[in-house]
């Protein structure tokens, strides 16, 4: 997509009056969110508040759910990715995703990383790309001698880093992470967190997390979502992380981060 100059040019991605419906159910209402380039933005909130739904709106993954319907705009380089002339395939090529449960392909480590580049028409040196991507995901030293091994032969934490390397291999602008450490043990989680901070030097990261300490440790901005009486999710508060955790403006936010509910 062409890089259009606009007043929103310094944001990596921006949601404007975003509403999501699953059939008749209003899942998320009126979300307005701006994501800064090369920062980590965390989406937190209780279960069912729609934070994962919002994340999936950023690369049109909700298109895969037949009953999902989206209203409002998601501006990426100033262009609404839900405009009819935008191909979701192009959006996902620029906005990569890492999922809750590590999901490498049942292929070799090498093919896991190289496949995305291949299908996207990569013409350079694949070996080099695989190496830099695995280095970028801090996995190269552990797997460089067994690139032919199946992705599933790795440990859970390694698998998740392989998925990150796989996302890096198509050189995206933004990486969406949907609770990337919830299936991992604390040590593996810590390695992923360190990796996220490293990656933020080059990439914009949006991460959904259940773990408030994780949000506090790694993110620059935090968006707190919660639900109203009709179980519809909405954005309660969005602020720089430090501010949100120390001086929340909203009473509900304060109750949540201090552990009074959620």
């Amino acid at each position: 997509m062409a890089d259009q100059s606009s007043s929103n040019g310094h944001y990596a991605i921006e949601a404007k009056n975003l509403n999501v419906f699953y059939g008749d159910f209003h899942a998320v209402k009126d979300v307005n969110l701006t994501v800064e380039k090369n920062k980590i933005t965390a989406l937190i909130g209780p279960s069912g508040c729609g934070k994962s739904t919002v994340l999936r709106c950023f690369n049109r993954m909700n298109d895969l759910i037949p009953v999902a319907r989206i209203q409002g705009d998601v501006l990426f380089h100033g262009k609404n990715i839900y405009d009819p002339d935008v191909d979701p395939v192009q959006v996902r090529r620029r906005i990569g995703m890492v999922f809750q449960k590590p999901n490498p392909f049942p292929k070799s480590i090498y093919d896991n990383v190289a496949w995305g580049a291949k299908i996207n028409g990569f013409k350079g040196d694949l070996d080099e790309l695989v190496r830099t991507s695995l280095e970028g995901a801090a996995l190269w030293d552990e797997v460089k001698d067994k690139l032919d091994a199946n992705g599933y032969s790795l440990s859970g934490g390694q698998q998740q880093r392989l998925c990150i390397a796989r996302a890096l291999a198509v050189r995206p602008d933004i990486i969406l992470m949907d609770e990337p450490t919830s299936a991992l043990d604390p040590i593996a989680s810590l390695r992923i967190e360190e990796l996220m901070i490293q990656l933020a030097e080059q990439y914009t990261i949006i991460v959904v997390t259940h773990n408030m300490q994780q949000a506090a440790r790694v993110s620059d901005y935090t968006a707190f979502f919660t639900v109203d009486e009709g179980r519809t999710g909405y954005l309660e508060e969005f602020a720089p992380t430090e501010e949100l955790f120390t001086t929340p403006r909203s009473r509900i936010t304060e109750d949540y981060i201090t552990g009074r509910f959620g």
Binding site: M61, W115, A167
Partner: peptide, 27 residues
């Protein structure tokens, strides 16, 4: 075929056919 494979494939910018051909059918 686990949904996770489809999502991973779409997430990398694969088209529907590429997802079916490379991941759904082989599995």
């Amino acid at each position: 075929v686990p949904r996770a494979f489809r999502e991973a494939s779409y997430g990398l910018g694969a088209t529907k056919w590429q997802t079916i051909w490379h991941h759904v059918l082989p599995n």
